[in-house]
Amino acid sequence: MPVVRIPTPLRPQAAGQDKVEASGATVGEVLADLGRQHPAIQERLFDGAEIRRFVNIYVNNEDVRYLEDLETPVAEKDEVSIIPAVAGG
């Protein structure tokens, strides 16, 4: 099953886990399954059906915006990462 890597600021919404297994054949399906398992994450990631503009999604190391966005295919061993912007410094 694909694995979703949860960034530090979202871990409290995912029972403290840094990785969550989620099923689906596309990025959209995998994130929807993540949302079913951890509803609090759903709201942080999505504004309606759209991914919030300050959240970036990668499949392995590729940004889905130059692939097929939420339609990007995800294979069994793929890793989906939620990458937030890091503000401090």
């Binding site: 530090t8 600021p9 503009r53 970036n56 401090g88």
Partner: peptide, 19 residues
């Protein structure tokens, strides 16, 4: 790459999350 900044309160800062 980062289309918009997270709104205040949606992202940790060095003051809230440490560094």
């Amino acid at each position: 790459v980062i289309e918009t900044a997270p709104p205040p309160g949606m992202t940790p800062t060095c003051e809230t999350a440490g560094v």
